[in-house]
């Protein structure tokens, strides 16, 4: 029995060691980003001897990129992009998901097949025509342009439909007995019960909008209308080899989302686990 106990302990320690090694690999790039951002350019590009920790923790790079890149504006653009994408996606998908799961009407199955069809198609196929539409509306370089492809969501509709299908039928019947019409049943009984899937969709949509790079690059080329992702990408061209500046800007761009993630960690992870979508 003694040996079994020791064996278990050894396994336990071995597992921890493997997990720690991988945690280290995951954290090194973030740590290096921070360490470089606090160095001077000379120190960052010094090889003999190679410097890991800055000899002086300088904030010059932060000040410089904060002023040059008008980060407040970038945060605002990103926030508006995320806000409108989440509102549109949750609103339309919550309604459509209910229609597809709990009501029977002519044309429903055909329309739902369109939803499934859209989910199979790689999104780049939509890109040129979507750009042409925005451009014809003379709406490039606006927040509307950033939000545009995400006004509705086939994936979210599918997710919400699945959520409603998991709810018991008696609830609706009871509501109807009490005199609720279809809309009241939806709004007061069923939609609140699908809350956790709405949260999952909201988180998924927010992370996706934050990380999206190609669409903002295509549609908003004016520096004042870019979200963080595209602004960072264009910045790389300008500061090409000033690594402390690049790392400081990357850090400033990542920190708000990381803080949000650390606060709402449980919701983030559950949201991704339930939506499991194509990120």
């Amino acid at each position: 029995m003694q040996s079994m106990e020791t064996k278990r302990k050894v396994t336990q320690i071995a597992i921890h060691i493997i997990l720690i090694i991988f945690s280290f690999i995951m954290l090194v790039p973030f740590a290096w980003m921070a360490l470089t951002a606090f160095k001077s350019t000379t120190e960052a590009t010094q090889v003999n001897p190679f410097v890991i920790f800055p000899s002086q923790w300088l904030t010059d790079s932060f000040k410089k990129v904060w002023n040059n890149m008008s980060f407040l504006l970038l945060y605002k653009n990103t926030l508006l992009l995320i806000f409108w994408r989440v509102v549109c996606a949750v609103l339309t998908a919550t309604m459509a998901g209910y229609g597809f799961s709990r009501l029977e009407f002519k044309g429903r199955d055909m329309m739902f097949n369109l939803i499934l069809f859209q989910m199979m198609i790689p999104s780049q196929i939509f890109l040129i025509p979507q750009y042409v539409m925005v451009s014809n509306m003379k709406m490039t370089n606006t927040i509307f342009a950033l939000v545009f492809p995400g006004i509705v969501t086939a994936f979210g509709t599918f997710l919400l439909k699945q959520a409603y299908m998991g709810l018991p039928k008696d609830l609706e019947e009871a509501a109807r007995m009490d005199g609720c019409n279809i809309f009241q049943t939806f709004l007061l009984i069923m939609a609140p019960l699908a809350r956790s899937s709405m949260v999952a969709l909201a988180i998924f949509t927010a992370v996706f909008a934050y990380k999206d790079l190609m669409w903002p690059l295509v549609v908003n080329t004016s520096a004042t209308k870019m979200p963080l992702s595209a602004a960072l990408a264009t910045m790389q061209g300008q500061y090409s080899s000033n690594y402390p500046d690049l790392m400081a800007a990357s850090l400033i761009a990542c920190v708000p989302m990381i803080v949000l993630y650390l606060i709402f960690q449980k919701q983030f992870i559950e949201g991704i686990a339930t939506s499991g979508g194509k990120l």
Binding site: L91, T92, A93, M95, A96, Y98, G99, F100, L103, E104, F105, K106, G107, R108, M111, L114, I115, Q118, I121, I125, F126, L127, I128, P129, Q130, V132, M133, F148, P149, I151, V152, T153, A154, T157, N181, I182, F183, F186
Partner: peptide, 28 residues
Amino acid sequence: NQFKWGWIFILPTMIGLIALNIYPIFAT
């Protein structure tokens, strides 16, 4: 009633889907 409400519920999504995804497939 179901027909009416069903279509009201799915209409915003379907209009968006057709304009933003289905039409672009053909356009591409």
